[in-house]
Amino acid sequence: MTELRKTMALHIGLLLLLLALNWLLPAYHHGNLSRIMVLASYAIGYNILFGYTGLLSLGHAMFFTAGMYGMALTMRHLGWTPAPAILAGLLSGLLLSLVVGFLALRTSGVAFMIVTLMFAQAVFLTVLYFGEYTRGDEGFVIQQAERIFLGIDLSDPNNRYLAALLAFSLCLLFTLWLVRHPFGKTIIAIRENEDRTRMLGYNVFRHKLTAVVISGTISALAGAMYGLLFGYAGATFASVQYSIFPLLWVLLGGAGTILGPFVGTLFMFYLIDLSSEFTTAYMLVAGIVLVALTLFAPHGLMGELRRRLFRWLP
């Protein structure tokens, strides 16, 4: 039981620390952390599929975008308020991941990467094709006055931070619960040895499909929150780049660790932000750091910590 206690202490501790930081951080970093927590939720969603189930998707931007547009389009064209709009976003992500998962899971390995990439590309082009409604690449603003969630003004920095923290906590605690749940143990078993898991009598396809849906829906939540908190929806978020980001964050932080997605997102954000202070060639810095990390910390930051120091980290 002591491991469980340590685990709980660590993660609840982190959430409490993040809560306390709301009142301690200077405005700039306060705003950054709001973003990072939403993006880290996206990475957590990605990690469920990549880190725990062992399926590498190159198309998660479509789920993020489904959430973002499910929320933004219902607000813009149907006049919905944020609460049902977020649900619409979640539902869009859920349906899309169900369909994509059902089709894409017929493949595995590199073919799975390409199929998800292709579906995401089709979603990106669809957003452009229906430019009349989506305003295509330009995107559109979700006005400040519309972003009132059950009476709370989400454009206020404090409310924004707390909303981001709430979403992040939900995702984090959910994954923590999930990996201790039999379902979580099964998808890890699938990652380690799919054939053996199948021989043990598990329905591998159904487990993988469930993982895709959970992962896609969490990504959609992040997308909806991002659009709502920062007041903008645009096709850029559906581009390939935004499918590669969560992969990078998760690999940096440590795939298959609970805290990895957060650590990776935080690290990458500040790497780019800080290096852009002294050079406009910040992509060069990012590139070098990525190469260095693969050479010297192949399991990501949290993965290395787990391997070297804290074997109990989930």
Binding site: I244, L247, L251, A286, G287, I288, V289, L290
Partner: peptide, 11 residues
Amino acid sequence: TIVATIGILYI
């Protein structure tokens, strides 16, 4: 290799 080559891509 994927991460390393993404890094090389940026560089």
